[in-house]
Structure formats: structure tokens, C-alpha cells
Amino acid sequence: MERFVYLKDVVTLALDPEKCIGCGMCLVVCPHGVLRMNNGHARIVNRDLCMECGACSRNCPTEAVTVEAGVGCAAAVINTALGRDGSSCCCVIEPDKDSGGGGLKTSQSARSGCC
């Protein structure tokens, strides 16, 4: 199976070992195996595989794992820069508001592999 790696040394993921209680929830929710357990604490082992989805920090009970979560989508970045609704890209879209966009199907089938 191909293993995809995006850009090097760019993600905002951080882990404070002082705060980590070793519950392992971040390992469970991470879709790319970025973290691993080491001596009862979580550790970042595959930093460049992180896609900043934010699942780890959301599920960390002690705020030991932090990340600036967002969707890695160029169209959303462009829309935000142009002052349009930045969320009207990819999957993150309200069907009701989808009048000028690429259509309902477009908005929903991106990242559809995840249902």
C-alpha cells in the first residue's frame, strides 16, 4: 500500500509530556498513526503524517496534545482570501447555502471515503 507524506516540518501539532497522563486516546483517534505510547506517555513519532484534523487534541482530557485544526483544502484557502465563505469548499458546506458552488453532489462526495 502506498504511504502518503505531505510537506515536511510544517504541522502545528505539539505534545506537552508534563501534562500527558498516558490515556492513549490520541493514539486511538489519529487516522495516520502519528503518535505512539512510550513509557506510559504518548509521543509524536510520525510528525509529517499529521493532517491537523484535530481529533487528538479534541480527545485529550488534559490538553497535553495541541494542534491548530483545519481542513487542508486549497479551494477553502482561496475562498477565505477572496473574502468568500471559507467553509464553502470540499465537504464542509451547508447544503442549503449551496447555490453558487459546484452543486450538492460536489460538496458531499469530497472526502466521501470517510463515511
Binding site: 510537506l7 504541522v11 487542508g72 483544502c73 484557502v77
Partner: peptide, 20 residues
């Protein structure tokens, strides 16, 4: 191709910003 980042399952927002 750049716009395909939105459909991919592994690109981060920080990475996309840097690329753009």
C-alpha cells in the same frame, strides 16, 4: 492538482498554506 488537496485524506491546512 492543488485543488485536489481538499479531496485528499492526508493534507494539513498548514501544509496547503505553505504550498500555496
Amino acid at each position: 492538482a492543488m485543488n485536489f488537496t481538499g479531496a485528499s485524506t492526508y493534507t494539513s491546512l498548514s501544509g496547503v498554506r505553505k504550498e500555496m
